[in-house]
Design a protein around this nucleic acid. Structure first.
Lengths: 158, 158
DNA sequence: ATCCATGCAAACCGTTTGCAAGCAA
DNA sequence: TTGCTTGCAAACGGTTTGCATGGAT
């Protein structure tokens, strides 16, 4: 608990530094939103965050959420994903191991994974195309393999 | 030319078979849209396709385009991409080598590439998570590396 | 005191839906 | 003839924008 507290102080510092160096004001709303994002796990979309903050009795507008998220994207404290549906998903990204996503087409559930070979592909592409790669998005779509235990369980239930 | 004609006949056949086996009607609009998509290269979005068909004097509605694209997605004759911007991009996908995308953040230009190691990652993820992967999306974002020739060229221009 | 940031509501825009008319089966 | 499909326009929903008020500097 103490450690995560300290980590959040670091994050606040990063945000402060970013705001300062880019001539943006350090408003309480921006820090409230940062905190709200960093005290919750998993992915989220703007509407969910908006509802959650409203439930927590914060006075906040969607416009400010979009505005602040943009700043957090700029300083890499948040990452944006466009998973199939036309609703942007976000997640906090400070010091979390880089990872990619598997999406279960049947349930929409997201699982994270990490494979070092992606780095090799990235390097190869950089050389082949003569480019510098700044970020990436890898998403696998599929479904859970039917396992023996599951089949047996289903038989029992039927 | 002859070969590509024959290929398109094959594609029409695939579409026909799909429509028939799923109880969908074989309307002239659906074939017109299929042809329009397959006689143009590169990625496209619905609006672009709509404008293009209007310019070609076709009477078509956006609703039918969305409807037909859905069918073409179902039978894998078209692939859908969600590149950052909230506007779905599509591309024809019959018999084209599976590939992934690099997007130049400065110009928005898309380059395709292919790396066999992705298949290895896919197999590893399938085993690790106990899933079956049906499709994927890998996008690298970056910019062109400044090359010596480019620098020299710029100096000449200035 | 300045003028950027906020909250609110309206505008925007890609996509979906409702409906009457059309046409494949 | 039946009822799926079409074109059109309205509705929808996530995101952006315009504007008056508020607050960081």
């Amino acid at each position: 608990m103490k450690e995560s507290k300290e980590t959040f102080e670091t994050i606040k510092k990063i945000f402060t530094e970013y705001l300062q160096s880019h001539g943006h004001r350090k408003t309480p709303e921006r820090y409230t939103i940062l905190k709200e994002i960093y005290t919750t796990d998993g992915h989220f979309d703007i509407e969910t965050l908006y509802i959650r903050m409203k439930n927590n009795k914060y006075r906040v507008s969607r416009a400010t959420l979009y505005n602040t998220i943009e700043l957090l994207l700029q300083c890499n404290l948040v990452t944006k994903h466009q998973f199939g549906n036309n609703c942007a998903q976000f997640e906090k990204s400070f010091k979390f191991r880089q990872h990619d996503h598997f999406i279960n087409l049947e349930t929409g559930k997201v699982i994270e994974f990490c494979d070092p070979r992606l780095q090799e592909i990235q390097s190869a592409v950089e050389e082949q195309l003569g480019v510098e790669i700044l970020s990436h998005s890898l998403i696998f779509y599929g479904r859970f393999t039917e396992r023996p235990e599951t089949v047996i369980l289903e038989k029992k239930l039927n």
